[in-house]
Write a protein that binds this DNA or RNA. Structure first.
Length: 423
RNA sequence: GUGGGUGUAGCUCAGUUGGUUAGAGCGCCGGACUGUGGCUCCGGAGGCCGCGGGUUCAAGUCCCGUUACCCACCCCA
């Protein structure tokens, strides 16, 4: 058989898995401090959850989903992102009934059928938070502060991060602007690439994203939504910026920041890093989605959140020279001089473990010398040597691997001696 | 979906104009006064040279195909 993991997936071996757990631990600690609670939603949903939530015309829905029919004839899709599921779940369980607010966070794998490249996998992990029921601009600033604070908490220098901010307007001002851009594109179609030309009909705002230099030049002359926001959106956007300023979080307004998911309204943001990511330089992003709950047939409920990618965050940390803490695999190694003392060695290791100490021993009948090498490799600060000589006196030898100092202690109090030695 | 690059020991890579038993470093295992680590020295194990065809007296080296990975476009976290 083929022992390779499927294209776009990767095994997370201990070093990476440890980093994964670290990312989740830091998230848990920080998000909890901001009042967010954990939520786990299914890894797959009815396809409709994504097609209606994210938008039929988006790339994600139109060509990147893992969709299949289950044995009951239902159309099922592996989740390509987290927000749609969380909002669906909040609606199902009435988490925002009677004006209640829900603050949730999640972490787990997402699935998109794309060509893999640096920082882009078919199964990739995201951590995200969602606030449902909060319309005030302080919520926008809080969500952005959590994202920013998370990367800082991991040790990413703030100079290496760039926060992009924009407003996409709402139902009151976006449609008119959208039509205006479509008209603008049609008027300049001769100077734009075919793709952008087509965008006039499908998703005109995406033309701002085009990397084609000619298109960029043309679009630079297009009217900005920022200048055509309705009064409510304009004041909301201004308030968000004021709150960010107060928090001392630096941001860059970028009118070309247009999220590719249909559900976004008003505030959108993204954090990019320059080093380590290749062309996939966004490590986290999100925005407000005030109409999403309604799209599912629920009551009008404002909402917003962000998602960040594990793989990319790790690449960014690596590029910034930030290490992932790796605790020693063993604090104490119990060495066996010969096989007459096996029972005592195994018993002592077990008692150390029960006392809360990371203890390791040999299971391969290795020589004493190689047991020491192993102890060294595992980072053990002490080695307890158990041999016939010691046992004859009812004792064991405790060796400090740093100072090479050896002391004899009674077998009966060996655990206490180790605890005392470890301090 | 489109384009470019690369596939040789566990890892990172060498392999000369095709020529005999395919190499190095790191890692791993063992040894250097028969119960002791990190340094040094010595030794050892480990390779369908991605896979399948072809050219040739001879292919890791050339040609074709295929597959996997990487990178970019695109899109997004």
């Amino acid at each position: 058989m083929n022992a390779q993991a499927p294209k776009g997936t990767a095994d997370m071996l201990p070093d990476v898995a440890r980093a994964w757990e670290h990312l989740q631990r830091v998230a848990q600690e920080l998000f909890t401090r901001y009042g967010y609670e954990p939520v786990y939603t299914p890894l797959f949903e009815h396809t409709e959850v994504f097609s209606r939530g994210i938008g039929e015309a988006t790339d994600i829905v139109s060509k990147e989903m893992y969709t299949f029919e289950d044995k009951g004839g239902r159309s099922i899709t592996l989740r390509p992102e987290g927000t749609a599921s969380v909002v669906r779940s909040a609606l199902e369980h009435n988490l925002t009934a009677n004006g209640a607010q829900a603050k949730l966070y999640y972490a787990g794998p997402m699935f998109r059928y794309e060509r893999p490249q640096k920082g882009r996998m078919r199964q990739f992990w995201q951590i995200g938070i969602e606030v449902l029921g909060a319309a005030e601009p302080t919520a926008d600033a809080e969500v952005i502060a959590v994202l920013w604070g998370y990367f800082e908490a991991l040790g990413l220098p703030r100079e290496s991060m760039r926060l992009l901010l924009n407003s996409m307007g709402d139902d009151a001002c976006r449609p008119a602007y959208r039509d205006g851009i479509a008209a603008f594109i049609r008027a300049h179609s001769a100077d734009l690439c075919d793709e952008c030309d087509r965008r006039a009909a499908t998703n005109p705002l995406r033309a701002f994203d085009c990397k084609n230099p000619a298109c960029r030049e043309v679009m630079a002359g297009a009217p900005l939504l920022r200048d055509e926001l309705c009064e409510a959106c304009a004041s909301h956007y201004a308030a968000v910026k004021t709150h960010l300023d107060a928090l001392g979080i630096p941001y860059v307004e970028d009118s070309s920041l247009v999220r590719g998911l249909d559900y976004y309204t008003r505030t959108v943001f993204e954090i990019q890093v320059e080093a380590g990511l290749g062309s996939q330089n966004a490590i986290g992003g999100g925005g407000r989605y005030d109409r999403l709950m309604e799209a599912y047939g629920g009551p009008a409920t404002p909402g917003l959140g962000f998602a960040l990618g594990f793989e990319r965050t790790l690449l960014a940390l690596e590029a910034a020279g930030v290490g992932i803490p790796a605790p020693p695999r063993a604090e104490v190694y119990v060495a066996r001089v010969d096989d007459t003392v096996t029972a005592e060695v195994f018993g002592l290791a077990q008692r150390l473990r029960e006392a809360g100490i990371a203890a390791e021993l040999d299971h391969q009948a290795r020589s004493l010398k190689s047991q020491f090498k192993q102890a060294d490799r595992l980072g053990a600060r002490f080695v307890v040597i158990v041999g016939p000589d010691e046992l004859a006196a009812g004792e064991v030898t405790l060796r400090d691997m740093g100072t090479k100092e050896e002391t004899r202690v009674a077998l009966g109090i060996a655990v206490d001696a180790v605890i005392a030695a470890l301090g």
